[in-house]
Simulated assay, not measured.
Amino acid sequence: MPAAAFGADERAGVYRAIETRRDVRNEFLPDALPAALVRRLLEAAHHAPSVGFMQPWNFILLRERERREAVHRLFSHANDEAAAMFGDERGRAYRALKLEGILAAPLNICVTCDRTRGGRVVLGKTHNPEMDLYSTVCAVQNLWLAARAEGVGVGWVSIYHADELKALLNVPDHVAIVAYLCVGYVDQLYARPELAEKGWRERLPLDELIFEEGWPEGGRETAVTPDE
Score class of each variant (00 low, 15 high):
residue 175 V to E: 01
residue 197 E to R: 00
residue 3 A to L: 12
residue 103 L to T: 03
residue 15 Y to E: 09
residue 71 V to E: 11
residue 207 D to Q: 14
residue 60 I to T: 12
residue 11 R to L: 13
residue 172 P to E: 05
residue 108 N to R: 01
residue 186 V to T: 10
residue 143 L to T: 09
residue 223 A to R: 10
residue 97 L to M: 15
residue 221 E to P: 00
residue 163 D to N: 11
residue 23 D to Y: 05
residue 21 R to A: 11
residue 198 K to N: 11
residue 195 L to M: 13
residue 64 E to N: 11
residue 49 P to D: 02
residue 192 R to G: 03
residue 167 A to F: 02
residue 184 G to S: 03
residue 5 A to C: 06
residue 79 N to G: 04
residue 184 G to C: 05
residue 190 Y to A: 04
residue 129 P to E: 09
residue 65 R to E: 15
residue 167 A to T: 10
residue 110 C to H: 00
residue 32 A to H: 09
residue 66 E to K: 05
residue 79 N to E: 14
residue 161 H to R: 15
residue 173 D to M: 04
residue 23 D to F: 04
residue 109 I to F: 05
residue 31 D to S: 12
residue 32 A to T: 13
residue 8 A to I: 09
residue 177 I to C: 03
residue 126 T to W: 08
residue 7 G to E: 13
residue 214 G to M: 09
residue 62 L to N: 03
residue 100 E to L: 07
residue 18 I to A: 14
residue 92 R to L: 13
residue 11 R to H: 07
residue 90 R to T: 12
residue 223 A to W: 11
residue 50 S to A: 11
residue 74 L to E: 09
residue 91 G to Q: 09
residue 48 A to G: 08
residue 156 W to C: 03
residue 181 L to C: 08
residue 215 W to F: 15
residue 126 T to S: 07
residue 152 V to H: 06
residue 130 E to P: 00
residue 48 A to D: 10
residue 185 Y to C: 01
residue 41 L to Q: 07
residue 112 T to F: 10
residue 181 L to E: 02
residue 92 R to K: 13
residue 54 M to K: 04
residue 116 T to W: 04
residue 56 P to C: 09
residue 153 G to F: 07
residue 134 Y to C: 06
residue 96 A to T: 06
residue 92 R to S: 09
residue 199 G to A: 09
residue 49 P to H: 03
residue 62 L to Y: 06
residue 171 V to M: 05
residue 59 F to V: 05
residue 172 P to H: 05
residue 114 D to E: 08
residue 76 S to L: 14
residue 25 R to P: 03
residue 7 G to L: 06
residue 8 A to L: 14
residue 6 F to S: 02
residue 203 R to Y: 05
residue 172 P to R: 04
residue 107 L to K: 04
residue 174 H to S: 06
residue 91 G to D: 10
residue 34 P to G: 09
residue 91 G to F: 12
residue 40 R to N: 11
residue 161 H to W: 14
residue 62 L to A: 10
residue 188 Q to T: 15
residue 8 A to D: 14
residue 4 A to D: 09
residue 72 H to L: 08
residue 76 S to K: 07
residue 58 N to C: 05
residue 84 A to K: 01
residue 157 V to W: 01
residue 121 V to A: 13
residue 124 G to L: 06
residue 220 R to P: 04
residue 67 R to M: 14
residue 29 L to V: 08
residue 111 V to R: 00
residue 164 E to K: 11
residue 199 G to Y: 08
residue 2 P to A: 03
residue 15 Y to C: 01
residue 210 I to E: 02
residue 83 A to L: 04
residue 42 L to V: 13
residue 181 L to D: 03
residue 185 Y to F: 15
residue 149 A to R: 00
residue 154 V to E: 03
residue 81 E to R: 11
residue 101 G to R: 02
residue 51 V to E: 11
residue 182 C to Q: 05
residue 194 E to Q: 11
residue 147 A to N: 06
residue 199 G to P: 00
residue 56 P to S: 07
